[in-house]
Design a binder for these strands. Structure first.
Length: 165
DNA sequence: CGTGTTTGACCTGCGC
DNA sequence: GCGCAGGTCAAACACG
């Protein structure tokens, strides 16, 4: 099973995979702590404070990074504490389906990137154990920049700077 | 009228 | 082969 290693660049890799190669972070994401876990959402946990934004709203995002070798499609999931279902990640998404899943009382929503030629998909569902959390799963890599992008500056000693190329 | 959402039907993969 | 569950399609609908 593929997963991101618990090393300094793990979250950066996840972000890169989720949001493309342009070192951009979505508007709504203000990560302070990450929880990495594999596709079963159980293993490889770590917390790593990362000061990304100048203004900290206090919200926390627990991210899970995973890289699925299946047909070369990269998949990254984030478990986010949020009252709203749809996080504004800067990209334009078009909803194409909604499905109730067996193991969750909450329906799962399916979105596709609305940008022509970009086949990135994401699934959004409420955490069955804690409805205050939203689980967002990105599948694929954007081949374009976000319409609303925040570029963050490397502070010189954080691996986040490796996103800038 | 154009764009995005809703929702039931359909397709597909997997386990038994 | 069959049934179930997850994922996708597409027509109908809502809204600006």
């Amino acid at each position: 099973m593929a997963y991101f290693p618990s090393q300094s660049t793990d979250w950066a890799m996840a972000m890169s995979l989720a949001f493309g190669h342009h070192s951009c972070l979505p508007m709504a994401l203000n990560p302070l702590n990450y929880t990495l876990f594999d596709e079963d959402s159980v293993a490889c946990q770590l917390e790593r404070p990362v000061p990304l934004m100048a203004s900290d709203s206090g919200s926390r995002i627990y991210g899970s990074g995973m890289q699925t070798p299946k047909e070369g499609v990269c998949r990254v999931a984030f478990r986010t504490k949020s009252e709203i279902d749809i996080l504004d990640d800067g990209f334009k998404w078009r909803k194409y389906g909604k499905k109730s899943v067996k193991d969750s009382p909450n329906p799962r929503n399916y979105y596709r990137c609305a940008t022509e030629g970009c086949g990135v998909k994401k699934r959004v569902e409420r955490d069955g154990e804690d409805p205050s959390y939203v689980i967002t799963t990105y599948e694929g890599v954007h081949n374009h920049t976000s319409p609303a992008v925040i570029y963050f500056k490397p502070d010189g000693h954080d691996s986040a700077g490796s996103l800038l190329s």
